[in-house]
Design a protein around this nucleic acid. Structure first.
Lengths: 206, 206
DNA sequence: GCGGTTAGTTGCGTGGCGCGCATCTTTGCG
DNA sequence: CGCAAAGATGCGCGCCACGCAACTAACCGC
């Protein structure tokens, strides 16, 4: 059961995370003080650090939540589905756009994208983002171990699979961001990346 | 030609990096102030930030340097060697132990290993370490693109290969650190990891 | 060698951050 | 209703990253 207590906590966390991202994309990383984020979330500055141990962590928090969902998604896939097929689908499931962004008016949307781009370029954030990915990867490795009946402690296999899958997603995203317009649909890139990895990345593909 | 200027700079950088690691492994991350590191390297605290933009970055600097060498090593491999063979060898080449550590007396060595372990567990450092890996990965992708005649801008292939290789090394290291004694030799783990990745990580290996 | 040029070092000052601690408020539960 | 536990807040401290303005040392053409 979800007590009022738990729910409020989750809400505050979400509010802080969203405020952190929103303000950063808008003004740039170091024009945002922790104080601003706390205020935007309607909470005291001191409380901010009860939820996140740094500004960067707050900004990366949504990325973390999203990445973690991949592991959950994998567990939902039918057990008889081939592993790499299931992984691909689990990864794809994370790329449905959120409602806050979807509901944005078009001009604002363009600025938003630009803001996010500069945000991702911020060195101080990259580390935290990568940490989030690493955490999710560990969780994914667990899911893979369960699904394949391998043992995390003795086999490298589940970790390798999780790492390769993470890498495929990361590369697809990087490629998506790099190749400006017209953008290849991200779903296509992800499917392709997974296929290449599952094929063992044989020397020159063409 | 290497001017005195350049050499001194490199030396200072190395001294700072080494001091940072050494002190941290010895006393723990937050019992080391920037001031201490600077002093140990014989330089003013202010100068520290002319070389590194954070304590964490200084500590990760050697990891970065080492990781970057993988790309260089790949370029040295004979051009007719199969790609994955060359990658494996390039990765293996980075794991010859450094002289500072090799020359350590045995009891000190044990403490050193323990220190490094706790250091790697420090959240504040993981991000920076991952950033270093990411930087090296980009460089490796370049080398792969050159070797295979693919194009970074249009093909995901070189990035995927670089990412998969990085992942293989990372997993091998993680596995090595986890499985305490008796440790499987790291070379063996790396070779194995690369082989699995190059084989496309087919579902359950046994 | 010699003086100007440029790169690098240092001290100082500032704004911000992360967090321990003590206190007050709210929620959960019998 | 009343108590115990969880959380929010205010305060204060030590540290850190970095801009700025001297100062010093290597470099380079002559």
């Amino acid at each position: 059961m979800t007590g009022l207590r738990e729910r409020k906590k989750a809400e505050t966390r979400a509010a802080l995370g969203w405020a952190a991202i929103h303000l950063t994309a808008e003004r740039g990383y170091d024009n945002v003080r922790v104080e601003d984020i706390a205020e935007a979330a309607g909470v005291s500055p001191r409380t901010f650090n009860n939820y996140f141990s740094s500004k960067a962590e707050a900004i990366a928090s949504r990325h973390l939540d999203r990445s973690l969902r991949t592991a959950a998604a994998l567990r939902e896939r039918p057990a008889d589905e081939p592993l790499w097929e299931a992984l691909t689908q689990a990864a794809l499931a994370q790329f449905t756009r959120g409602p806050e962004v979807e509901a944005m008016p078009s001009p604002a949307h363009a600025q938003w994208v630009a803001g996010v781009r500069t945000m991702l370029a911020e060195p101080a954030l990259q580390g935290e983002r990568l940490r989030a990915v690493a955490t999710a990867e560990a969780e994914l490795a667990n899911a893979v171990a369960e699904r394949t009946g391998t043992d995390l402690a003795t086999d490298m296999y589940p970790r390798l699979v999780a790492a390769a899958a993470s890498a495929a997603v990361a590369v697809a995203m990087a490629h998506y961001l790099d190749s400006a317009d017209p953008p290849t649909p991200i779903e296509h890139l992800i499917t392709d990346a997974f296929a290449q990895v599952a094929a063992g990345l044989p020397a020159p593909p063409r």
